[in-house]
């Protein structure tokens, strides 16, 4: 570990003279979970906007798949450029700890965006992955709460609902479910049934919806905690011919979900603000470069989309661009 740092000290000394003139702007790198996803493309736009405003050079580099095998080499190549701060959406809580620590030891500050390493609680003196300065993301508990409130309102505060989720153990979707259930406690007329896990398979999510309905004919709503959970649940509702009777709330808003809202297949969707994550991430990085303290956790907001507001310009711009 120290040896890298030593080696790097050597290089930086050698390259310092030339580098100083070429790198008079501070440099921030953004490494997304994958480059081919609308969520991260939108995040890049927000980051670029902040970089332009603040006079920062932004490096945007990532792999084509959400996989540490692909992301880590990119991380190393970016580290070799010696940016001041790396903003990264780690593709694994555990596996990115060691590679990020190497970058950190080489003198680069780390901020994670959207996803996190270790427990996601940084700078509290606990855990292997405590060294990143901040975690910039949507507050998924809050997002789940908003989904719960929207669904409760849509069903008039009465009936049975359940969460269609991916699988236990994923930090973001677990938090959404937690927030959803929390919100539902305010509605005594609503019963939350057992959560159904679909392994990110829309087909399975559809079959599960039909099975739940078979046992609970008074089912009035379902919360799809991610893209495929929602698409699958909506498909199951359509197959039952219950569109408009069983309400579907989705999480995340790529154009596909927006089309489904317009066609009535999905009633509402909770949009994260990836643009803001990118924007706030670069702002936090700039603060770090200026030597300021930043919060170890920075939350960004949500927008609830439904058929009534989807065509308003301030809502439209929250659709993840492709």
């Amino acid at each position: 570990m120290h040896k890298i740092a030593l080696a790097l000290a050597g290089i930086t000394a050698l390259a310092a003279a030339g580098a100083a003139s070429a790198q008079d702007k501070p440099t921030v790198a953004l490494i997304p979970g994958l480059t081919t996803d609308a969520f991260y493309i939108t995040m890049h736009k927000g980051a670029q906007a902040a970089a332009d405003e603040l006079g920062i050079e932004l490096i945007y580099q990532g792999g084509p798949e959400f996989n540490p095998t692909v992301q880590v080499p990119v991380l190393q190549a970016v580290t070799a450029r010696q940016p001041d701060v790396i903003l990264i959406a780690p593709t694994d809580k555990q596996q990115l700890i060691a590679p990020l620590r190497q970058a950190h030891d080489a003198g680069v500050q780390i901020i994670t965006v959207d996803t996190f390493i270790d427990d996601g609680k940084y700078q509290d003196g606990e855990g292997e992955g405590d060294f990143p300065l901040s975690y910039v993301a949507s507050d998924n508990v809050q997002g789940g709460r908003m989904a719960g409130e929207a669904l409760a309102k849509a069903v008039g505060g009465e009936g049975k609902v359940y969460v269609s989720n991916v699988k236990p153990g994923i930090s973001t979707t677990d938090q959404r479910e937690e927030g959803f259930k929390e919100a539902m406690q305010a509605f005594p007329g609503i019963e939350v049934l057992e959560t159904q896990f679909n392994d990110d398979d829309a087909n399975k999510a559809a079959a599960q919806l039909q099975a739940v309905f078979a046992r609970n004919p008074d089912l009035v709503g379902v919360f799809g905690a991610n893209l495929f959970s929602a698409i699958g649940a909506a498909d199951g509702v359509k197959a039952l011919g219950k569109s408009g009777e069983i309400r579907v709330v989705a999480f995340d808003t790529p154009t596909r979900i927006v089309d489904d809202i317009k066609s009535g297949l999905i009633d509402m969707a909770i949009a994260q603000h990836p643009y803001d994550i990118g924007y706030e991430g670069v702002k936090a990085a700039a603060a770090v470069i200026d030597g300021q303290q930043i919060e170890p956790s920075i939350g960004t907001g949500f927008t609830v989309m439904d058929a009534s507001n989807i065509d308003q310009p301030e809502v439209r711009e929250r659709i993840y661009s492709e």
Binding site: A7, A15, A17, G18, A22, Q23, T69, P73, A80
Partner: peptide, 25 residues
């Protein structure tokens, strides 16, 4: 690298090690 950034590409250990690690799998 030299022209655009004024840094060496191959002339440092970190880059060589990274490329070697990259190639290993």
């Amino acid at each position: 690298s030299r022209a655009s950034y004024g840094v060496t590409f191959l002339g440092n250990t970190f880059n060589l090690q990274s490329i070697a690690l990259f190639a290993a799998f």
